[in-house]
């Protein structure tokens, strides 16, 4: 993928100026400018991602559905959603369906970022023409409401313990578990989403979703908190390559 200027695309992250300052090289994913790497070699970025690294995924497709009947409607659309809240359920295409509450689902695309599932669901959903309308929930746009970061690496739980009250250590907070809590005094959703490998132990990784209007603040807080562990910004490529 050739490097592009982020301003050449209409869809870019709220914090793209910060990413530019940090030396990001951008590429296009599904019509949006995504930081692919930060100028280091592939090996160096991978090493950072295994130790402690922060990536901005805000422009990758994410969406929500809410309301009574939501889980049933999404199941009818072919998603697999379990009964428990605060668990993120993996989907066939690598997407995650995060059940935030009995009747609220937050959908995160896979790191491929094609947005195919969200597109299919959004075009499948419509109000029934007349009353009584079936209980099927309704779409809740999340693309521009939530910034989306990924914190990856062995030191992520230790770093989170500085800024969040929930115990996120790997033996206490399982893969796929969700914590909706306060991070750096901001309401945020944390989802543990380990990067799996063919052989050996999966790499620790956590999605962090929070109000996009404060994305710059949270990004700087996370980098600041990780400084003592040698945190580095990494691009999408390193996160994708972790899973090999």
């Amino acid at each position: 993928m050739n490097a592009i200027n982020p301003t050449s695309l209409k869809r870019r992250s709220f914090i793209y100026r910060e990413l530019v300052k940090l030396g990001a090289a951008f590429g296009e994913v599904n019509g949006a400018a995504v930081a692919l790497n930060f100028g280091a070699t592939r090996e160096a970025e991978l090493a950072s991602a295994r130790r402690l690294a922060l990536a901005d995924l805000s422009v990758l497709p994410h969406a929500g559905f809410k309301g009574r009947g939501t889980a049933e409607w999404l199941t009818a659309q072919g998603l697999s959603i379990g009964p428990d809240s605060n668990i993120a359920y993996g989907q066939a295409g690598g997407e995650l369906a995060a059940r935030l509450a009995p009747a609220e689902i937050f959908l995160l695309d896979s790191l491929a970022g094609s947005g195919a599932l969200m597109q299919r669901l959004n075009s499948a959903w419509k109000w029934a023409e007349a009353a009584p309308r079936p209980q099927q929930g309704y779409p809740l746009p999340r693309q521009d409401s939530h910034g989306w970061f990924m914190l990856a690496g062995e030191f992520a739980p230790e770093m989170f313990s500085k800024m969040c009250g929930v115990d996120l250590r790997r033996d206490r907070f399982a893969d796929g578990q969700i914590a909706q809590t306060s991070v750096a005094k901001m309401g945020a959703i944390i989802i543990r989403a380990d990067r799996k490998v063919k052989y050996g132990r999966a790499h620790a990784a956590y999605h962090v979703l929070a109000d996009i209007a404060s994305a710059e603040y949270l990004w700087s807080c996370l980098l600041d908190a990780g400084e003592e562990f040698g945190i580095k910004p990494v691009g999408l490529t390193a996160l994708r390559d972790l899973e090999q």
């Binding site: 509450a101 009250g165 909706q180 809590t181």
Partner: peptide
């Protein structure tokens, strides 16, 4: 810190409520 048990999210710091 005082801890409250949220029926959805489990035990959390009282500052979250």
């Amino acid at each position: 810190m005082k801890v409250m048990n949220c029926p959805l999210n489990g035990p959390r710091n009282i500052s979250e409520f």
